[in-house]
Amino acid sequence: MPVKALLIAVLMALGTLTQAQGFAGLGTDADGFATPQRGTDLQFPRDHGPHPDFRIEWWYLTATLTGEDGVDYGIQWTLFRSALAPTEAEGWQSPQVWMGHAGLTTPTQHYFAERLARGGIGQAGVTAHPFDAWIDDWQMAGDDLSDLRLVARGDVFSYDLRMQADGALIRHGDNGYSVKSEAGQASYYYSQPAYQIDGVLHLPDGPVRVTGDGWLDREWSSQPLAEDQTGWDWFSLSFDDGERLMGFILRGAQGDFTSGTWIAADGTATALPHGAFQADPLGTTEVAGRQVPTRWRVYVPERGLDAQVMALNPNSWMGTAFAYWEGPVSVTGSHTGRGYLEMTGY
């Protein structure tokens, strides 16, 4: 389906984007899109809002939750923006396209929903202050980023959660400039990894009151992947001792590229250079007709981390137009805790 092709094209940023590399120094690529520049100072709350001159952008929230019934749950709420041209316009003439994904994972079930919307008409969008990110009736909104209400709805599930941050924003990479390949592809990337969450999940069996931890990722770019890169494995882990880890592997034909950020219990972030974060698949599960690694060994030797990461529900497949695996995980080994795993390109 071409709509899917569109999404894949913008999300995976194939072909033409990498050819545009030579223009990176000028700040725009061949199609006129802005490219991330090292040394740019992120400004808040301004940068919570959209950057229409960049090709792609997302507001990505994942949360590991526990119900009053003692059962573990996970939810995902994502708003993607992709620009067909580096401009904004009123009405249907806007070249901005928005996509929402919502997931709800239980140990035995995985629900998901998808929304698509045109920019320019108000069906979807983000405002920085007061913060409001929405698509259709899905919403993440509050006075500012530290106190938000999160709502999404599919045809058989919905959730309504309150999120309060108790820590500072984390800038990944070089003060928010996150390199994605050895050739130099990069994005702007920051996170709020420390939300306290409570609220209600509406499942087909009825409502469940839940509490837990949330992690918001903000990223925008015009060229996040190199030509040979086929997908990624991305981890966000919160350990019981208060430390946190963000790490990803970009799988490429000419070798994998890894990166990450170690977040101390006091909120101090340290970028992990290429190779410092490593993860190896330990076991796969057949999901949607493909072999997807749902058990991993994750290690950061310089931080003494050597742990096993296991999917809460190995079937956490997001069968959306652009399909991928996304679900809550548990951590055992040198560290214990919970987190989220996203895997694309399988």
Partner: peptide
């Protein structure tokens, strides 16, 4: 609206993918 009409045969038919790029349809 192409995005909310992806079910129409002209857009959804298997051969449609070769015929056009969604970005071309959406932009002048």
């Amino acid at each position: 609206d192409l995005l909310s009409s992806a079910d129409l045969p002209a857009f959804a038919a298997p051969e449609a993918a070769q015929n056009f790029q969604a970005a071309d349809v959406l932009t002048p």
